[in-house]
Write a protein that binds this DNA or RNA. Sequence first.
DNA 1: TGCAAATATATGTACGTACATTTAATGTCG
DNA 2: CGACATTAAATGTACGTACATATATTTGCA
Lengths: 151, 151
Amino acid sequence: MRIEDEIKQAHFQDEHQKAIINLIYTSGWLQLRQACAFKRFALTSPQFNILRILRGQHPQPATVALLIERMLDKTSNASRIVDRLEEKKLVTRTVCPSNRRAVDIRITPAGLALLDQIEESGVMQAAAHASLSEAEARQLNDLLDKMRDTD
Amino acid sequence: MRIEDEIKQAHFQDEHQKAIINLIYTSGWLQLRQACAFKRFALTSPQFNILRILRGQHPQPATVALLIERMLDKTSNASRIVDRLEEKKLVTRTVCPSNRRAVDIRITPAGLALLDQIEESGVMQAAAHASLSEAEARQLNDLLDKMRDTD
DNA sequence: TGCAAATATATGTACGTACATTTAATGTCG
DNA sequence: CGACATTAAATGTACGTACATATATTTGCA
């Protein structure tokens, strides 16, 4: 369905304006699908992303600073997302011995098992599936990269 | 800058996976720019969007249901966004006489003046500016519309 | 008429985001 | 050494989102 019909707005100033609305709308649509997929595992998308970053580091620990660097959303509050993962025993927090200001965050066996379970379930593929060909996906990547070329 | 470098992730499963990350990242990047632009007017993006919808209806009122229908984010809580606009005297709420369950929401002269001021300031153009040609923007719109074709 | 279902909005709760401030540990330089 | 800046994380506050539930009004139908 075209964006005009999705949001019941017949006219846009120009194609750029429309692309921006379309982009934000489509991103929301995707994120809703992802959130939906994670819900049966009692995880949110940011929680899932942090678990994946921690698995990437495992068995090394990560600091909050490293999580922020790797997260899509730089300004999100990693500290509080880790709070929730810690409550669920999916990660541990220990004071870093070599720098007692920092905190070593590690994924637990339960966290690793949960990631495996999610990946086996195939919900990722379902949520990520989009009706684009390989070439179209590549084209989309190029356009998005170019779009951000203003800095 | 390419998405690989933006989020310091060298590899993606495939071009689709990358496009999804890229899309969500680019949408966040755009929304941050928009939020920044509105901040000097003490408005958030959802508040601005609701004001625009109300101007579109003006001098007719809108109901909460109409706002939700027109908003990008269908599940957002229009009622509470209207609360904040009402506190700022940018909109009024009155019980709809013909259907006392519904609420007539109207933009005030102050709300109209604020929209004018924002548009005169040119921040919209600045936030919306993207380095895509007209043809590229159209291509992007087509790809995004196609991407959502799964329902 | 009267009562249940449907409708319109508001409210509650958990979570995330944006940004400012606080707390604690470390580095630095006189 | 000791004051001061810097760094790492946590905390506070306002706002938005997602979803469940509550409240009030209207509608429909026995």
